[in-house]
């Protein structure tokens, strides 16, 4: 994590989240998990219509309401 002390685990400057002070093991595990999730996001994105919007969620809940 960014702080006033020098990090014992300085990552390469072009690493994602290089500002976080993490052990190499934790950093590698985080990157691997994010990559796993990213593959799903990529697959889902290819199936989504261009018009898909973050507000669709609330709209669908309200439209499908069964009080």
């Amino acid at each position: 994590m960014a702080n006033s002390k020098a990090s014992p685990n300085p990552p390469a400057a072009d690493e994602p989240a290089a500002y976080l002070d993490m052990t190499p093991e934790r950093r590698a595990a985080a990157k691997a998990h994010a990559a796993l999730l990213s593959r799903t996001a990529d697959r889902v994105a290819r199936e989504l219509p261009m018009s898909a919007d973050v507000d669709d969620f609330r709209r669908v809940l309200a439209q499908e309401a069964k009080p």
């Binding site: 990529d42 889902v44 989504l48 898909a52 919007d53 973050v54 969620f57 499908e64």
Partner: peptide
């Protein structure tokens, strides 16, 4: 910390897909 490794586009894809999946 893990959340900092998720790309913005991936995060928004998940949010945009939410209505479709519901």
């Amino acid at each position: 910390e893990l959340g900092h490794f998720i790309g913005a586009v991936d995060h928004l894809t998940a949010l945009r897909a939410r209505g479709t999946y519901v």
